[in-house]
Amino acid sequence: MMKPALCLLIFFCVIFLLPPATVNAQQQPNIKISFINYAGNQPLVPDSLYANCWKENYSVSRLKYYISNIALQTSNQKWNAEQNSYHLVDESDSLSKNFSFYLPSGNYTTLSFLIGVDSLKNVSGAQTGALDPLNSMFWTWNSGYIMFKMEGTSPQSAAVNNKIEYHIGGFSGVDNAVKKIRLQLAGIPVAINNKSITEIIIRANIDKLWNAATVLKITETPVCTIPGPLAGRIAANYTTMFDVLKIVQR
């Protein structure tokens, strides 16, 4: 009569010794989004001299921008979003330029994200991670995130020390500089599954900052550090800087 009890004991021991099934294999990252910053038609090298489309020379010492609220759309029009989707792309930190997450398997046609931080997170107090004010991307005198920050120099700049400095922010009303980007995935649809990692490599060409929806020249506007119409025009321009360079599956 001992036997059933002993069996039960062994059975339960085995059950409890097994690792808990909390790690859902399905939640393993299967998509990677990567950003490569470009200056015109070549990858950006910090502190190197480039000429923009108006033949103005410039170099970039610092380039940081927020990518948030990433979502992908399937061929049956369903959007799947990354949870807690806030990333700070920092040219000086190679690890910051790509991020992986899990997407349900399916055929995807469109990628969408915000350049900037949604208005809600701008009014929700102290954040951490990518949104930590430690990252020097938060305005203290007029609360809110700097969505996009580019600093450098240009011989054409009349600002102190030939600076170019674009701190673009503002999240409400007419000053809203948060922009939504939608990119079609080339060779669509892209099949994303649990067996491989799909990497979408995005090119961000900063030259567009001066020439897209409106013409902006370093000679005229080398600096923008407050929300307002100029910030809005710069944001509208850099909204066009993204395109899908390639998609790799491995």
Binding site: S124, G125, P133
Partner: peptide, 8 residues
């Protein structure tokens, strides 16, 4: 009124 949340 430039600060929109007590935490920041």
């Amino acid at each position: 009124g430039g600060v929109n949340h007590i935490e920041v």
